[in-house]
Design a protein around this nucleic acid. Structure first.
Length: 653
RNA sequence: GGGGGCGUAGCUCAGUUGGAUAGAGCAUCAGCCUUCUAAGCUGAGGGUCACAGGUUCGAUUCCUGUCGCCCCUACCA
């Protein structure tokens, strides 16, 4: 609704520009600093002032003379030349009532958007850094889908990489475990295999450090895993598949699902890389280095992806090593080409699992299967949710597309980057992690899988549930343990997802248990609480007085116009009506944090409302009806927003 | 050395692409539960937007320089 008004205003001012000044140009709207200035402001006169060499105030007056826009009560000139827009509160409110009944969904666009996120190396349990990736990616997907975009979610599985190989080395060489022994470990319900691998990975990394000669194990193992044959390769698959399942379960706890798992093993076995390699050579995107430190490698020149156009060999990036094996970036170029349908090849797919909600998760596989499989890839736009430390590699991938002549796809490849999650020094101390004097002075300490230093995702979720459950039990002695457990889980998820979203992408999160476990202030549970209160008010009314009034009959524009003279009510209604606009803005700025902030502000606005006004006990019937409708409307908008944020709604707290 | 990011209240962070009196949460202090759940609400204190120049009607925002912090700059991913 608010979005419609915004669109109409932009169009109307655009026309005025044409008619009055014969000018084209973007018209931007902004929210006035103070609500007393109106609902929207148009600062266009300031921009025109320079061009036209006339005072902005005069221009503003000319622009709004005779201007009529539906739903707008008045335009006012303020300050040096602001055009402040005042909405017709009665008309606007009653429109909201109507559109709630219609509730038209935006039509799904045919163009496919691929969002790749999570991408955790399948060799150990997920940690809080991975959670940020998955929550950011999943929320962005929900935002896009809420606005009718056609989105496919891919979770890339590097099941043949060094990290998997290292854990295989750990089992095989360090522990001397056979394939069947590892199988037994996986089958043992008393053992958390992903946690066991977490420790094993730290141990083998330490072992390499103390015994550099043992790095030969890694090379042999990596080779066997990549080739995909023999017991070592089987062990690799066993470890990777098992850990992938652990990750899928961890993410499912947060409501995160995927459509397809493209795997590196298929990139290799189906010759995706070989095809991409031929293409890169053929079009001169990479060349064979004859001398210098990169002698014997296929490299991409630095000029392809660096600003400074230097041809220095220091800047070039090795794509194929001198031993003939391909680097990760090379495989990633092949994968990115496939996402756009540019490789001229496709995977085979098989069912990986069915989620409890019925959604089917597919995985790539290297041979035909009997069941009917969907089509993946062929995207128009690709978002890669990858942390900002890898921006250099992402630049190389995009440069690869460009060097192959796929300029449009290069433009449509978005590195959806975010900063890492580190640990606050206080949290390190709480966890008993020893810090060097140097670390103590730092604002945060980097998580390290190799050192086994970090907070495991499932541990954090468990701890959040435990904390929430204590509070829920305390407040709801009358409910069953199972009911309270469910509520605690929902609150924990709300707290965690909100925590991961409240920071903008380029800010480093210094993870702090105290902050993450807080359910007060700007947190998920605060927003959930507001929605719970709204539901409770409506339920309580129905318990006492029966069905809700017939809103559409009772609430005429005149009734609204009268009630909404109260600025408190009007601001709440206005904020609630901005849901779609808030989602759209969060999409275009690429900041899920903005939507989280919106949810918080709406919750805050509603909290103020229910403290200031008694809904059920309001004596005036018309006013009470307005309050009830407003409560219901805010509740729906709040729940819809929470759903886009992936935050579940408890029935009580 | 090169590339990128950051520096805003005691702490953690927003700041709508250059606009009106710079905002939240936490923490601190003072209030509010016989009335729809106090995971809440009201109020107070707290700012040289790192620093210095520049651009202009106007700069937290853009440009230059300085200082400080972080990340990247592998034949790891």
């Amino acid at each position: 609704m608010f979005q419609d008004i915004e669109d109409n205003l932009v169009a109307a001012f655009g026309r005025q520009l044409q008619v009055r000044f014969q000018l084209d140009g973007p018209v931007s709207l902004e929210q006035p600093k103070q609500s007393s200035f109106g609902e929207l402001a148009v600062p266009i006169a300031f921009q025109l002032a320079r061009q036209l060499k006339r005072p902005p105030r005069q221009i503003a007056e000319e622009l709004v003379r005779d201007l009529k826009v539906e739903g707008v009560a008045a335009f006012e000139i303020a300050g040096n030349g602001y055009v402040n827009v005042r909405l017709d509160r009665g008309v606007y409110s009653s429109r909201l009532l109507e559109s709630a009944a219609a509730n038209i969904r935006p039509a799904a666009a045919a163009a496919k958007i691929v969002v790749e996120h999570t991408n955790i190396n399948p060799n150990k349990a997920a940690h809080i850094g991975h959670l940020r990736n998955a929550v950011l990616g999943d929320t962005f997907v929900r935002m896009l889908r809420a606005r009718g975009r056609n989105v496919e979610v891919q979770n890339y599985i590097d099941n043949t990489g060094v990290q998997v190989a290292d854990v295989v080395v750990g089992f095989h060489h360090l522990e001397g475990k056979s394939l069947s022994q590892v199988k037994a470990l996986i089958a043992d319900p008393a053992i958390r295999f992903d946690y066991l691998c977490w420790d094993l990975y730290a141990r083998i990394s330490a072992h390499y450090k103390d015994h550099p000669e043992s790095l030969a194990w890694r090379a042999q193992t990596l080779h066997a895993v990549e080739a995909g044959e023999g017991e070592i390769a089987e062990l690799g698959h066993l470890v990777a598949d098992s850990i992938v399942n652990a990750h899928i379960n961890t993410m499912l706890r947060l409501g995160i699902e995927y459509d397809v798992l493209p795997r590196e093993s298929e990139i290799l076995h189906l010759q995706f890389w070989a095809t991409a390699f031929e293409l890169l050579k053929e079009r001169g995107a990479i060349y064979f280095e004859e001398e210098g430190k990169n002698k014997g490698c296929w490299v991409m020149p630095g000029s392809a992806f660096k600003e400074n156009q230097s041809e220095s060999e220091d800047d070039s990036k090795v794509i194929v090593r001198s031993n003939g094996t391909v680097t990760y970036v090379g495989k990633d170029i092949a994968y990115q080409l496939w996402k756009f349908g540019l490789l001229g090849k496709d995977f085979y797919y098989r069912r990986w699992c069915d989620y409890p909600d019925g959604h089917r998760l597919w995985s790539t596989t290297d041979g035909p299967v009997t069941e009917k499989t969907p089509e993946f890839g062929r995207a128009q736009t690709v978002f890669n949710v990858i942390d900002s430390r890898q921006s250099y590699l992402q630049d190389v991938v995009v440069a690869g597309l460009r060097a192959l002549g796929f300029d449009k796809q290069a433009e449509s490849s978005v590195h959806f980057s975010y900063e890492m999650v580190a640990l606050s020094p206080r949290t390190c101390l709480e966890m008993g992690i020893p810090l060097s004097d140097e670390d103590k002075r730092k604002p945060y300490v980097e998580v390290s899988g190799r050192k086994g230093l970090g907070v495991k995702a499932d541990d954090l979720i468990d701890k959040l549930i435990e904390t929430a459950l204590a509070e829920v039990d305390n407040r709801n002695a009358d409910k069953s343990p199972a009911q309270n457990q469910l509520a605690a889980e929902q609150i924990a998820i709300g707290a965690l997802r909100y925590f991961m979203l409240k920071f903008t992408r380029n800010s480093v999160i210094a993870f702090d248990f105290h902050e993450a476990l807080s359910f007060q202030g700007e947190t998920g549970p605060y927003v959930q609480y507001a929605a719970v209160r709204a539901s409770k008010i409506l339920r309580e009314f129905q318990n006492r007085w029966g069905p809700l009034p017939d809103f559409e009959a009772a609430l005429t524009p005149a009734v609204f116009a009268d009630a909404m003279q109260d600025d408190g009510l009007w601001q709440l209604l206005l904020t609630a009506s901005k849901r779609c606009s808030a989602i759209e803005k969060a999409i275009s700025s690429g900041e899920p944090a903005h939507l989280a902030k919106y949810a918080f502000q709406l919750a805050q606005s509603f909290s103020n409302f229910y403290h200031e006004y008694q809904v059920i006990n309001e004596a005036n019937e018309v006013r009470r009806t307005v309050f009830l409708w407003l409560t219901d409307y805010v509740r729906r908008q709040l729940m819809a927003t929470l759903s886009v944020l992936g935050i579940p709604q408890p029935s009580y707290m």
